[in-house]
Design a binder for these strands. Structure first.
Length: 463
RNA sequence: GGCGCGAUGGCCAAGUGGUAAGGCGGCAGUCUGCAAAACUGCUAUUCGGGAGUUCGAUUCUCCCUCGCGCCUCCA
């Protein structure tokens, strides 16, 4: 059974589900106003690992949101909205922007072998639920109105500091880097509903009991998570940056409204960092899956790279490290091809095989220790176990890792030129004309084709 | 200014109160006409620096240095 680090208890907790026969999990999804960068994607990879590991024990109802409502670039100003900004930038409507980047996001998501959530929930399709939740909070006296919106009074929610710590919340008052909206009663108060500016027409806005406007960012997750998963969820995931603000506010909203515990296990993934700091949309210079592909890497090379590190430690990205990941993954694929060629399909040592599977699962169950799991994998792959046993093990392991190890990679077709060179080389070797043979090998190498000679004859592959 | 996280070999990276998994890379050997692949062996007496606790610390405590994150949308 899974043990998972819970930000709420600051402990690796044994996982149990609230419902008898399935687990519930909500993951904060993308804001679709631009391409996702590989740092964003690291979080989805870690969440996918969690889904896969949990799924080995029980079905998982997995919900992810898509934030397609634009939110303000800052709490402090009444200003611009990222979605509308993106629209202006590209000369499209905010709705088109959201649709376009949502499609792009899922392309990346799929290419990294992340399993699609059971439910994908768009914020714009759940405005009604959000309004209902704000209304409930209003009835219970958690809200107040300012000139620009309806706010949550965090002083009315005594356990507001639970997730992040009281010292942090208290610290908000003393050392802020931004000016606070002086209509706010507490530094930590946040908007539940924002009024549309009077001087400007927004593309995305809705009617509400408080006037035309749009929902606050935090309300969408609480509303949608509870709609699909009930008042209390087992797991809620997200990036580490969400702990202090977004998730803290989600708890205040949900628990304020229902009076019940909102989330039993809070699970957060650490950042991918560049040598000069985190990768982020706003600070520019971000790397996308497309960038990786253009440089000749497979998205799965990146997935392997992420697997090498624990999800709760920062991972420093470099192309050097990505190249190592690629070499390792390709090396593993090559071994698998060789195993497939020699297997007779019969399992030789059931006990040994099961022991390896158990060791692998134990590593995954230990707070998703992928690095350790990979060590178990390599140990078994390099052991003297039979080919059929190894393949069976790899199939099992790949169910967790999601590297498509057992699938054949689509080979680029061999150009005619190379085909001819290979035929010539075969001829030369038959005549033991090694000088010509070696020259042809060099020529093929220049075309990106590696040739090796085996007892069965020459074999080639793309380098 | 407040809060928090981290520092392990050339690189990536696990881990534990009793003396360091795994991968990549490198070196040597076997194999090969030569290579490649595979296989075998080697590759951190040491875990940022200093002090303390302990029979014993890389693992616990304290201080320092450096890196990173959050406090503003952000994975």
């Amino acid at each position: 059974m899974l043990k998972i680090y819970n930000t709420l208890t600051k402990n690796k907790d044994a996982f149990t589900s609230l419902n008898k026969d399935f687990a519930t999990m909500y993951c904060c999804g993308p804001t679709v106003y631009n391409y996702a960068h590989i740092g964003n994607l690291r979080t989805y990879i870690f969440e996918d690992l969690l889904v896969r590991t949990l799924s080995a024990d029980m079905p998982v109802k997995h919900v992810m949101n898509v934030t397609d409502v634009g939110h303000l670039t800052s709490d402090a100003d009444s200003g611009e909205d990222k979605m509308e900004l993106g629209a202006a930038r590209e000369g499209k409507s905010a709705w088109d922007i959201a649709k376009f980047y949502e499609g792009k996001f899922f392309e990346d998501f799929d290419s990294l072998n992340c399993r699609r959530p059971t439910v994908t929930a768009r914020a714009t399709e759940h405005i009604k639920e959000m309004i209902a939740l704000v209304k409930k909070l209003e009835e219970k006296g958690y809200t107040y109105k300012t000139s620009d919106g309806i706010y949550y009074d965090t002083s009315k929610f005594p356990s507001y500091h639970n997730l992040v710590g009281r010292a942090h919340i208290d610290g908000l008052k003393t050392g802020a880097r931004v000016d606070f909206n002086d209509e706010k009663r507490n530094a930590s108060d946040f908007a539940l509903w924002k009024f549309s500016p009077t001087d400007k027409q927004r593309q995305m806005q809705w009617d509400s009991p408080w006037g035309v406007g749009f929902p606050g960012w935090h309300i969408e997750c609480s509303a949608m998570a509870m709609k699909y998963l009930g008042d209390t969820l087992d797991i809620h995931c997200g990036g580490i940056d969400h702990v202090a603000i977004h998730h803290t506010n989600e708890i205040a909203q949900a628990e304020g409204a229902t009076g019940k515990k909102y989330v039993r296990y809070w699970v957060h993934g650490e950042f991918l960092i560049m040598t000069n700091g985190k990768m982020s949309k706003s600070s520019g210079g971000f790397v996308t899956v497309q960038t990786l592909k253009e440089k000749g890497y497979s998205p799965l090379d990146y997935r392997y790279l992420c697997l090498g590190a624990h999800y709760r430690t920062q991972l420093e990205f470099s192309y050097e490290a990505l190249t190592f990941a690629r070499n390792t993954r390709l090396g593993l694929m090559e071994r698998i091809a060789a195993l497939k060629a020699e297997t007779d399909g019969k399992i030789q040592d059931e006990a040994g095989l099961n022991a390896a599977k158990t060791a692998f699962k134990e590593a995954m169950d230990d707070d998703l220790n992928t690095s350790k799991a990979l060590a178990v994998l390599w140990e078994f792959v390099k052991s003297r176990a039979a080919a059929a046993d190894k393949l069976d093990f790899l199939k099992y392991a790949d169910g967790f890792l999601g590297l498509s190890l057992l699938e054949e990679e689509a080979q680029k077709p061999l150009p005619k030129e190379a085909e001819e060179l290979l035929a010539l080389r075969k001829e030369a070797r038959a005549k033991k004309d090694f000088k010509t043979s070696d020259e042809l090998r060099d020529k093929l190498s220049a075309l990106g084709i590696a040739v090796k000679d085996t007892p069965k004859g020459q074999e080639w592959r793309w380098k």
